[in-house]
Design a protein around this nucleic acid. Structure first.
Lengths: 151, 151
DNA sequence: ATCTTTGCAAACTTTTTGCACCAAT
DNA sequence: ATTGGTGCAAAAAGTTTGCAAAGAT
């Protein structure tokens, strides 16, 4: 409710209109919290408003992204995932089983300062995924299907 | 020449066949060295072999990727970029001007060990991009077009 | 001779866009 | 009343696939 209100005010402040679809997308984002695809959001939203179209979801996400409320990441092949901007974590994605785990952004702060210091580059937390192999797949390595890899 | 030979032997060793197209793609990769799209490669290859089709490029890249010779990254929206695996660097991508800079992988080794230690996750170097704002855009910040953002 | 790779066209997946209508302010 | 948002259908953009023919071993 809290976070929704902020986003809604933000939208209004920029001349945006508050529609059922937008509220529902926002609500879905707040609830889902992390790595949902546009399609995921659509499915959630359509439970309440079946007539909402995927293009509306994309356009809403676009609008929210321009306001800085939402961000998205390309975890690999396929769909992008969206989330509210202040979920401070990074994603580690297993290239064997495609699992996604969240790790605290603190692990990345040193990298962040190094990039800033040495390259003048201001790294954006939360906007990329680290690819590799997860604990489980490493253990079973070889025995398991490299299946639908994420890269 | 060197690196091409290694890749070629690798291909042969796995029952692969050495074709004009494959040699040309490999050559293009060796020459281009970094962040080329499948289409870039196609253009290069077609200078020598105009009949080569984009699907051949993709299939060649797939094959090379399975051998560990090639890797690809999704730098953001749009096309993936491919490169030979032993270019030990990471990419930092500016979300304002879309410029790509390479930084030595050493900056990432600590993160790598942390992820291994704390999460059992074996991070793959070279397979993701760090998004943020480059020095120049930070300086001009606001004054410049956020143009074709990479995210 | 065998089995892989190729070119082509067509399918597929994800995202974007044009347009006429609808709805929020 | 005005302007921005929506649904739809169709296009785009990037990549993958089925197939018959060509090519590498």
């Amino acid at each position: 409710m809290e976070r929704m209100q902020i986003a809604i005010e933000n939208l209004k402040a920029h001349g945006g209109r508050i529609t059922h679809a937008r509220k529902a997308v926002l609500q879905a984002l707040v609830t889902a919290k992390t790595h949902v695809t546009a399609e995921d959001l659509l499915n959630i939203v359509q439970k309440q408003f079946p007539e909402v179209h995927i293009s509306t979801v994309y356009r809403t996400l676009d609008a929210l992204e321009k306001l800085g409320v939402v961000d998205h990441v390309h975890l690999g092949h396929g769909k992008a995932v969206y989330h509210l901007t202040d979920n401070s974590h990074q994603h580690i994605v297993c290239e064997m089983c495609s699992s996604v785990e969240e790790v605290p952004y603190q692990l990345f702060t040193e990298l962040q300062s190094n990039l800033k210091e040495k390259y003048g580059f201001q790294m954006r937390m939360n906007h990329f995924a680290v690819i590799g192999k997860c604990r489980r797949c490493l253990k079973e390595s070889g025995s398991t299907r490299p299946s639908s890899s994420t890269h």
